[in-house]
Design a protein around this nucleic acid. Structure first.
Lengths: 344, 344
DNA sequence: GCATCTTGCTAATCCGATTTAACAACGGAG
DNA sequence: CTCCGTTGTTAAATCGGATTAGCAAGATGC
């Protein structure tokens, strides 16, 4: 049975002052003249009693619960996207905030219900997050509220977005290939926007391809072909097998995600081709498999942690939120899957 | 600018009754005689105004915030353990509760600070979770509180624990091998408790091995050897390579975790041995790689979702919490890595 | 016809803080 | 000696609900 919590009234009584004085002393407000002696006695009493303010009670008056709601479609289940939550959480903690984490599973009704549950608990702000970078329409309950969109964009919805810089990542993939000397026999596996589950289309594929082609072209290289397929291991395996069976001999593969890379590794291995000796591979996302594949995969990392952190930093910043798009760099994880082009 | 929230006073005014009557009508209490007419008017007014009770304000009086705190060492970052959170979250939602998710990163001071932050917000209960199944000592702030231990055990701490049934999983691994006809040439890779980062020792390794050996022996089979190593891909690769280099010819490998299995696959592949033609592999955990390895890995799944769900169900159950240990079955994911023993 | 019960409703308090308005006590100016 | 401005402090109101105690009006009992 937890003993009754110490209240401010207890502190005031022990310090021999009124609750009002205790409140001012504890909140450290200077506009409300408290003698040093009184302040000291209150602080001392609070320390001795182990007083901690009841945030819930305080919020009734101040309207601030120091609490942020986090609504996502499926983000907690996505491999490694837990880093988004960790980034958000740590940034929140640094400013004495806590996070309500919720997941609607893509269900609009569940989403509304969750947002209501959050608002009923007086959250100060809401982070609306998506598993894939895509266009969304936030539930109407969020209109006019303090919101940051995480990993998604909502034209017409007045809130800042935080997204990975996919375009620049595409460019960096091209730069990495060019730097190793690749100018021909380059294939892209995974295509532009091949995830069937997202009708709005995912942004990642398009922007990665755009950046890739732009820099390749500028560097005097070209893409031999683009294979459209789902972003999973099975499809990567099948498409690369088919490519090889058709007689093509790629020197470099740009896989649109690590899962596809893993499938590509399997297909190349079965064909007796080595990475990066015969074929270089550069990838995107840096999922957990990327570092344990052999050879370790060179990939452009989704900056999960920084995405989560930036979202919270924006939300807890002063002043109104501007409807800008914040792009977070995707750092190159330079490992072992890119080599100099194989000589024929 | 969100317009002022509708309060119960607004509803009462619109319905032409006192706030007291509105409160009773809305809470549906039968012990406090409200005429059907009044009740109907209040409900109608609430509906029209879109009234939602302020949970924060209510909790000031009732002491219940319908909110649960979740404290873990690193669980949000563990691959796929997001399922724990999802299970907990969904169970919470079904009973109109929300979850504060926090992560202390193994830091005792941070842990205390987080628990305080939770208690300051008047959480009704706390789930104390660990990434690995192990012994823990919860922070003193949690003593006497409503707590459920998730994936950990704390002797002397009066709270229920929810853990995977590792012992039975070990037995099931043995049964799967016996059923396929394996009785000799069986090696265990990963050993008893080889994770260096957990000084308390992890329970999983020991119990898995115990169940494995027990059923193997009862079935007239035996373990040719146990290789102790870290639970990661690199070590699995190195140890299995060494095993083969030493001239051993295992017919079945029991890998203590999927990461080790992945390393084993790599080593076996390099040695020209096929799975399951030459060597069967059975594993534990069912991480995300298990299903995408080729051949797909047969493994005993860590029941993340059900662990999280059960913890919340216990916490939101009626009455006091008993200090019992709840073991959740680890279902066999029967895929393609076990075959009949190779003939010499 | 008067005392007693029900029935239906509401005034007043409380929960734990913050904040506004006001009030003593004191010192200096005139 | 009075007036006024500081300084330090506190009573009271407030936030949005839940709950206790009590109060009218009508029904019932004898």
């Amino acid at each position: 049975m937890p003993e009754r919590r110490v209240t401010m009234a207890d502190v005031a009584r022990k310090a021999g002052v009124s609750p009002t004085t205790a409140s001012f002393a504890l909140s450290g407000r200077t506009d409300m003249r408290i003698s040093d002696a009184s302040r000291e006695r209150v602080l001392e009493a609070a320390r001795e009693l182990g007083y901690r303010p009841n945030v819930t009670a305080r919020s009734l008056r101040t309207k601030s619960t120091q609490t942020i709601g986090f609504v996502s479609d499926r983000i907690t289940t996505t491999p490694f996207a837990g880093d988004v939550i960790r980034g958000a959480m740590e940034a929140a903690r640094e400013r004495d905030n806590l996070l309500f984490i919720t997941e609607a599973g893509g269900d609009r009704a569940a989403e509304s219900s969750l947002v209501h549950a959050l608002l009923d608990r007086q959250v100060d702000a809401v982070i609306y997050a998506s598993m894939f970078t895509r266009y969304v329409t936030p539930p109407k309950e969020l209109f006019g509220r303090r919101v940051v969109l995480l990993n998604c964009l909502a034209p017409g919805f007045d809130a800042p977005s935080v997204v990975p810089d996919e375009l620049e990542a595409g460019r960096d993939a091209a730069r990495a290939l060019l730097a190793a000397g690749h100018t021909e026999g380059i294939w892209a596996i995974g295509g532009h926007q091949a995830v069937p589950a997202t009708p709005e289309g995912i942004i990642a594929g398009n922007e990665r391809m755009r950046g890739l082609e732009e820099v390749l072209r500028a560097g005097g290289a070209r893409l031999d072909g683009v294979v459209e397929c789902d972003w999973d291991t099975r499809d990567g395996y099948r498409e690369v097998s088919a490519l090889l069976a058709a007689g093509h001999r790629p020197r470099a593969l740009v896989c649109l995600t690590d899962r596809v890379s893993m499938g590509a590794y399997q297909a190349l291995g079965e064909a007796g081709l080595s990475v990066p000796g015969d074929v270089s591979v550069v990838s995107f996302d840096d999922q957990d498999i990327a570092a344990v594949l052999r050879p370790a995969l060179t990939t452009l990392k989704l900056p999960h942690y920084r995405l989560g952190r930036l979202a919270v930093e924006l939300i807890l910043g002063e002043g109104p939120l501007e409807a800008a798009v914040h792009r977070v760099p995707m750092p190159l994880q330079d490992r072992a899957s890119i080599g100099t082009p194989a000589t024929r």
